[in-house]
Design a protein around this nucleic acid. Structure first.
Lengths: 227, 227
DNA sequence: TTACGATCCGGACCGAGGTCCGTTTAATTT
DNA sequence: AAATTAAACGGACCTCGGTCCGGATCGTAA
């Protein structure tokens, strides 16, 4: 199934008021070039300036300082341009995370085992969680700020990609289970908001979260335990 | 540990600009009377009118129609009053859900088994999930609209109460596990945003979600399975 | 080089959440 | 009943996300 088919058959029609022009990919598409493909020269230039300005603002004032107007001003660009390019604030923040997300995607899609192909599914699952935890822990603030409203949270390409990956691994590990639901459960453990709560508000060390992931994978897949 | 102690030791200092006056409870406190206790007569009256107006707006225009100004106008009250009373939009929406939430709390704290005390922990856990799923399914829209920003999501009294309940049950069922983390995992399965995605966007029937909960509880507690 | 159409730009504009502070009012004390 | 004070009130005001559309700009074709 093509990506577009999958999305359009899954999503109800979203009435996007001022259709953003790109930012649909975020799905790993090796070899097709950068995000600026198909953009007019000035548009590509402005896009780069905007991302640059946004990153600068994050570095200086944190994610909260990333105001659409501030970004526009810092990039010496009109406000409307920001929205045309990225759709909304969430889109801009997501674009900032896009680079590292793609690296992560590449590593579990085609990187070295055990994260990538080659290892047994349970091992890959364990590795996946660790990598996801690490990724969530770095720039947690940005991830939180980029969290979309509830009704889009589960249908964004990066999430869908991760989800399908986990479903695939689960199908291999526990063929008779409801792998869709189990996958959602596992993914929830890696949710930035939860990581934030556990580490920043409950002061749990990352080692504990990681051990918790191993334990969870073991319980869900029926591995190990006093059997 | 007192509730206030728990919260203040858990939370970083939140700079609440215009301190809301109540809405701290939401924690079941049998016998202390309604929410209007300690409020000045006019304040209590306005609170009631506001909740009434808000409920009317929800019924007429959905949760999206609940504008702070609209509520204020419909209750014939100043806008500032709404914020003074409920803190923010989330607080108002939460207050709308408070009644049913308390009923739910009462049912698992002191209602009849297996949801209430008396049944084995795993049975209580199963019943808890079913009740929570049902509750999330009713007025899903309101629950989504009432979702707080990520850094408060896990520290609100209702959530904490549910969480501690699940932790307690887990400690009885699997004493040697990291019950805090397992509890968070189980709770994530009941998150309104996820329920919304699965039922409304993936069109799963509730029966499947319920079966998924039973299965999840079984796996997490090590119950059943081909042992 | 010119002409043309699609794309992009920019900033005025709007709505909604949230804040501030001078004024009013309910409870309490004398 | 008058005085006092803490609490509540209300709406002007601010910020920020998001929209709109007339005008500028780019790419292209003649």
């Amino acid at each position: 199934m093509l990506y577009a088919d999958f999305m359009s058959s899954t999503l109800p029609p979203f009435p996007t008021p001022q259709e953003p022009v790109e930012e649909k990919p975020v799905l790993l598409e090796l070899g097709t070039g950068t995000d600026e493909s198909g953009l007019r020269a000035d548009a590509a230039r402005n896009r780069a300036r905007l991302l640059d300005a946004a990153a600068r603002l994050v570095a200086e004032h944190g994610a909260a300082g990333v105001t659409m107007e501030a970004v526009a001003a810092a990039a010496q660009v009109g406000k409307g341009t920001v929205f045309r390019r990225f759709g909304d604030r969430t889109g801009l923040l997501t674009a900032l995370l896009d680079h590292s997300e793609r690296k992560f995607q590449a590593s579990f899609l085609s990187g070295p085992a055990p994260l990538g192909p080659g290892a047994p599914p349970v091992d890959r699952l364990r590795a996946f969680g660790c990598a996801a935890l690490r990724r969530a822990a770095d720039d947690l603030e940005l991830q939180l700020a980029a969290e979309p409203c509830p009704d889009r949270r589960f249908v964004l390409p990066p999430r869908q990609l991760r989800y399908r990956h986990v479903v695939m691994l689960l199908r291999q590990a526990v063929p008779d289970a409801d792998c869709e639901l189990l996958a959602q459960t596992l993914m929830s453990y890696l949710e930035p908001a939860l990581i934030f709560h556990l580490t920043r508000q409950c002061h749990m060390p990352m080692e504990r979260l990681q051990a918790g992931w191993y334990d969870l994978v073991a319980r869900v897949t029926g591995t190990a335990g006093p059997c």
